[in-house]
Design a protein around this nucleic acid. Structure first.
Length: 115
DNA sequence: GGTCTGACTAAAT
DNA sequence: GATTTAGCCAGAC
């Protein structure tokens, strides 16, 4: 029994958190990772999304700079920004315009919108 | 089974 | 302030 994992299922946790992202909002891998207690494992967040279902709005997750770095992992590299624009998020050159404005922090927004 | 790379981030230079 | 290094963990070779 060498299973000392207080983090439970990191995968499921990431998917669940990302799934809670409201429409027209975006977040970063680090934000989700930090919310799960693995701020330094931001890479694993992206990896988790790699095996995520289509029910998970992975297109709402971008890097710290607001760049659609993960667009290549989608069915089509344009699907990501296409969906974002479809939700009201302005994307320019694979980058979110006014990223901070659309940024959605699970550590904060989650508690504020728990009505 | 060691090495490299990757949907990242932060700190150091 | 842009570039580089290091840390993270997991999958592919």
């Amino acid at each position: 029994m060498s299973e000392s994992r207080p983090e439970r299922d990191f995968y499921a946790d990431v998917l669940e958190t990302v799934r809670e992202i409201p429409r027209g909002r975006v977040t970063s891998y680090g934000a989700v990772a930090k919310y799960l207690g693995a701020a330094r494992s931001s890479r694993m967040v992206g990896w988790a999304l790699n095996g995520a279902s289509e029910q998970v709005p992975a297109h709402r997750v971008v890097n710290r700079q607001g760049e659609l770095t993960g667009r290549s992992a989608f069915s089509t590299p344009d699907l990501m920004e296409e969906r974002l624009e479809s939700e009201g998020v302005r994307v320019k050159n694979h980058r979110i315009v006014d990223f901070a404005r659309y940024f959605w922090d699970p550590c904060v927004e989650m508690e504020v919108d728990l009505s």
